[in-house]
Amino acid sequence: MRPYERTHPWLKFQLDLRRASKELWLRLGEAQSKCEHIAGTPLKPATGQKLHQVYLAKGVLATTAIEGNTLTEAEVLQLLEGKLHLPKSKEYLRQEIENVVKVCNEITSDRETSDGELTVERIRSFNRSILKDLEIPPDTVVPGVTRPYSVVVGPYKGAPHEDCDFLLKELCSWLNEPVFRPAKEERIAFAVLRAVLAHLYLAWIHPFGDGNGRTARMVEFFILLSAGVPSPAAHLLSNHYNQTRSDYYRQLQFASSSGGDVFPFLQYAATGFVDGLRSQIEAIRVQQWNEAWCNYVDEQFGERPSASQLRQKNLVLDLSEHDDWLTAEIPKLSPSLAASYATKQAKTISRDVNSLIHRGLIEKRGTRVRARREIILAFLPPRKQRS
Rank of each mutant, 00 (worst) to 15 (best):
P9V: 13
P9E: 10
R18H: 08
L24A: 06
L26I: 13
L26C: 05
R27V: 07
G29H: 05
G29C: 08
Q49F: 07
L51F: 08
V54C: 04
L56N: 02
T63C: 09
N69F: 07
A74S: 12
H85T: 12
P87R: 13
P87V: 14
Y92R: 09
K102A: 15
R111D: 08
G116H: 03
R124L: 09
D139Y: 02
G144T: 09
R147W: 04
V152E: 00
G158Q: 02
W174M: 11
F180V: 11
A183V: 12
I188A: 01
F190K: 07
L193Q: 00
A195V: 13
V196W: 00
L200V: 04
L200A: 04
A203Q: 05
I205F: 01
H206L: 08
P207N: 06
M218L: 14
F221L: 14
L224R: 01
L225T: 08
G228I: 07
N242V: 09
R250V: 03
F254T: 04
S256A: 07
G260A: 06
F263A: 06
F265D: 00
L266I: 05
Q267T: 12
A270G: 04
V274K: 06
Q280E: 14
I281M: 13
R285C: 11
Q288V: 12
Q309H: 10
L317S: 06
L319D: 07
L319S: 04
L326C: 04
L333Q: 03
A338N: 09
S340M: 13
S340A: 14
T348H: 11
I349Y: 05
R351C: 10
I357P: 02
E363Q: 10
G366D: 01
V369I: 15
R370S: 03
R370K: 14
R373Y: 02
E374H: 10
R383H: 15
R383N: 10
R386W: 05
R386G: 00
